[in-house]
Amino acid sequence: MTLNNFADAYGNPVGVIVKSDSHIRYWAQIYNGNETVLPVEPQEYAFGRYVRVEYPNTAQRRQLIGIIYDSMLLNPSFGSLGPRLASDDSQRAIFSPDYLSERAVLIGIIAIGSMEYLANGEPSPDSIGKEQGAPSFAAELGAKVFPLTESEIYAFHFYGESSEAAPALHIAYISQLLSAPFGLLPQAALRILDQLEPMFPNYQRHLKIIRRNILWKQSIEPAR
């Protein structure tokens, strides 16, 4: 799956940024059927997926890169226990359309870096234009969130041919996932290893060790 032009890279957004907790933690609201032509499939915003968030000035061709590490359902009527007019959505669409649009799915995104795209829409092929870790710039409210394609994921982690000085594969943000105090990040880290393993066959043994290290910290160490 390669990107032929920049427009392709935009693909279909899955939602927009609606809130942030910090420089690296964001909440995005997933489009519901009313806002998009194509409905958003749940696998497009699955737990552990890589996403990019466009910066307002897209001429820079830099995008924030993040991982979906949490989700939340919003229900405005939660807590109001009054009698219901209708018992299912098909009836609700008729009797109370406002109510439906106020319900929302939010996804938690943790920013893990940023990446520049070339004029032709391809991501930068080597270490130039990539940053892993906390990105320099925050995302903005209303910015669109796109799922990352496989080649974009590969590009984000590929830092040039492996050499004496450095290996080809870089996952410098992984310790950030492991050391952060909120719960689901280690599981998200395991999910990203699932995605990287087939992409970097030369590094399968290395990734296995990293996985083993996370699993040990997750499952055995707390029991000791």
Binding site: Q132, G133, A165, A166, P167, L169, H170, I171, A172, Y173, I174, S175, Y203, R205, H206, I209, I210
Partner: peptide, 13 residues
Amino acid sequence: IAPQDIAAIMGYP
């Protein structure tokens, strides 16, 4: 696998 390589992948030169 050398541990330095793993560290390098994880961003420790």
